[in-house]
Simulated scan of single mutants.
Amino acid sequence: MSRKTSGLLLVVAIALVDGEGRVLVQQRPPGKPMAGLWEFPGGKVEPGEIPEAALVRELTEELGIEIAIEALAPIAFASEGLGERHLVLLLYVAHTWEGAPEPRHASALRWVRPAEMRGLAMPPADVPLVDALERLL
């Protein structure tokens, strides 16, 4: 089976895990695609950028936190069609960072256990990552 796409969209995301084993999720703001859904923080990888550097940049922009590339560990990926494009989402996990996350580009933030994520409305690409995260934690 051959499927064509006009391009790949490479996105990175993070499962920030606190000392209680909870993971940070953010709610997409009104006016954005998939508004109101809960997702792992992250964003697009820009041309010429490595995924880990993109994630460090996105976390500073979105949450106001600093994180070292060495603190990032890749754990899973998802692949999802988005109309003419195709999304590849790389999920990393981290247990250490500097600063308190704040919702700079989201409606809200929540700390939840991986099992609780099953009750949240999430983008289609995020849903299969919950299984991988639950096995890891």
Rank of each mutant, 00 (worst) to 15 (best):
E52F: 10
G19M: 00
P33W: 01
Q27R: 06
R104C: 05
E49C: 07
A73T: 15
L10C: 06
P41D: 02
Q26L: 06
E102L: 11
L109M: 02
A108Y: 09
T60F: 13
K32N: 06
G64C: 03
R28N: 05
A53I: 15
F40M: 04
W38T: 11
E39L: 02
P47A: 05
G119R: 12
R57E: 03
G42I: 01
G48C: 07
P114A: 13
L82H: 11
G81H: 11
I65P: 09
V25R: 00
P74T: 08
P30Y: 00
E98S: 14
V45M: 03
A73F: 07
A94K: 09
A68C: 10
L91M: 08
A121H: 14
A53P: 13
R57I: 05
L87Q: 05
V17D: 00
V112D: 09
G119N: 12
V93Q: 02
V88K: 06
F40Y: 03
T5Q: 03
A35K: 08
G42N: 01
E62L: 02
M117F: 02
T5I: 09
L87D: 02
E66H: 12
L109I: 09
H86G: 12
A100D: 15
L59T: 13
E58D: 06
V56S: 00
I67Y: 07
Y92M: 02
H95P: 02
G64I: 07
L82R: 12
H86R: 14
P114R: 11
G7E: 06
R104E: 04
R3H: 13
K4G: 10
E20M: 03
E39D: 09
P114S: 12
M117I: 09
R118C: 07
G7L: 07
L37W: 03
A125S: 15
A94P: 08
T96W: 04
P123A: 12
P33M: 03
A78Y: 09
R28T: 10
L109F: 01
E62K: 09
I50M: 12
R3M: 09
A108P: 10
W38K: 10
L120R: 15
I65A: 13
E52I: 14
P74S: 06
A100E: 15
T60K: 15
E58R: 11
V11H: 06
P29N: 00
I75M: 02
P29W: 00
E46N: 11
I75S: 01
G81S: 13
R3S: 13
R118N: 12
I50V: 15
E84Q: 10
T60W: 14
A94G: 07
L91V: 08
L37K: 08
G81I: 14
G83V: 06
S79G: 10
L120T: 15
A106G: 08
L24P: 03
L90H: 11
I67K: 07
L59Y: 10
S79M: 08
L63N: 03
E49D: 07
P124F: 06
L120W: 11
P123Q: 14
L37C: 04
K44Y: 12
Q27N: 03
P30K: 04
K4M: 10
P124L: 10
A68S: 14
E52W: 11
V12W: 01
E20W: 05
L72Q: 14
Y92P: 05
G119V: 10
I67M: 07
E58Q: 09
V11F: 08
L37G: 00
